[in-house]
């Protein structure tokens, strides 16, 4: 019997939530293909994390000091052995920094390809398929795999997290040595920043803010939602101008995001920006120019000066959050 494998991501001993969303996608494939969902996790001391892998029939923990630090090549090699030993017909992972690094390498070792950033998966008569945004979100492609196993990274915030019981854990000793690349150090970003792609709310700012220091308004609105909820985003114009880091850019040469709630503040709405956020649940635009293209995709708009509107909005959101 062929199975659906999920590579779970464990960082600092904690299971990353997008891995549970990938399990939900795997469950859909398992239902359609008749296989079981098997999770593979790598790391050093990952017992607590592997016990949280809800919705799986079996968990393979490749655990040990040799895997204390991430190495794309060493981890891929160990994972591929388990994919083969467990008859993996499909291999899924969350579309995170690790997923984007690891699954392409796994797919190369398996002499197949990977479809990345997918928003839905399918299995018809044993043929796996997926849908994914292309051209920075300007179009959606439906793809069918023609080689096996089928590999895909799953866009965060797009499937519900799996719940229920976790499978029995089978431990495998992590090999040591023999690493081509290895992570030497992880430097945490200050202030508990919420990752853009996983944020429930994105507050994005653009040229309309007039100066880099005015992004404080954007940061304050994001902070008003409480810790871990909102992330700051930026238009390409302000990233290219050096006001904000590229990691915050939303759009075709930045990130494509689909949070439940998106604020575009002082952003006119260039085509490549709209492509990167048009799948958000609810879009709010605040702009001085009533004719700005951003209002064409926004659910709710306020025409006005960001310096006047945003502080009032921040105060109002803070009150809503405080009264919850």
């Amino acid at each position: 019997m062929s199975n659906i494998i999920v590579i779970a991501e464990v960082r600092g001993g904690s299971l990353k939530r997008p891995s549970l969303e990938a399990i939900t996608a795997a469950q859909q494939l398992a239902t359609a293909s008749g296989g079981q969902v098997i999770a593979i996790a790598c790391g050093n001391g990952i017992d607590a994390a592997t016990s949280e892998l809800a919705g799986t029939s079996k968990v393979i923990a490749i655990d040990g000091a040799g895997f204390a630090n991430y190495s794309g090549d060493a981890w891929a090699k160990a994972i591929v052995e388990q994919v083969k030993a467990n008859n993996g017909a499909a291999v899924l992972m969350a579309h995170t920094a690790m997923g984007k690094d690891l699954l392409p390498r796994v797919s190369g070792l398996l002499d197949t390809g990977v479809i990345t950033d997918v928003v839905s998966v399918s299995c018809d008569d044993g043929t796996f398929g997926a849908r994914k945004p292309v051209f920075g979100g300007k179009a959606t492609m439906t793809i069918r795999a023609t080689k096996s196993p089928f590999c895909a990274t799953i866009r965060p915030n797009n499937f519900e997290a799996a719940s229920g019981s976790s499978g029995e854990v089978a431990k495998v000793d992590a090999p040591s040595g023999d690493m081509l690349s290895v992570v030497k150090e992880i430097i945490a970003a200050g202030g508990g920043t919420t990752p853009l792609a996983e944020a429930k709310v994105v507050v994005a700012g653009g040229r309309g803010l007039k100066a880099p220091e005015k992004f404080k308004l954007i940061e304050e609105l994001a902070a008003a939602f409480g810790p871990g909820v909102a992330a700051v985003g930026a238009s390409r114009a302000v990233v290219d101008a050096g006001w904000r880091p590229h990691s915050e850019q939303v759009g075709q040469t930045g990130k494509v995001v689909s949070p439940p709630l998106y604020f575009a503040i002082g952003i006119s709405g260039a085509i490549q920006h709209l492509a990167g956020m048009r799948t958000a649940g609810t879009i709010v635009a605040i702009n001085k120019d009533a004719d700005a293209p951003i209002f064409k995709v926004a659910d709710f708009g306020i025409v006005g000066d960001a310096f006047e509107v945003v502080p009032a909005l921040t105060k109002a959101i803070a009150e809503v959050v405080a009264n919850r």
Partner: peptide, 15 residues
């Protein structure tokens, strides 16, 4: 920025 599939580097390195 057309296919947005960012798989080439890892796949190529593995091969």
């Amino acid at each position: 920025v057309d296919s947005d599939n960012n798989q080439l580097p890892g796949n190529l390195a593995a091969r």
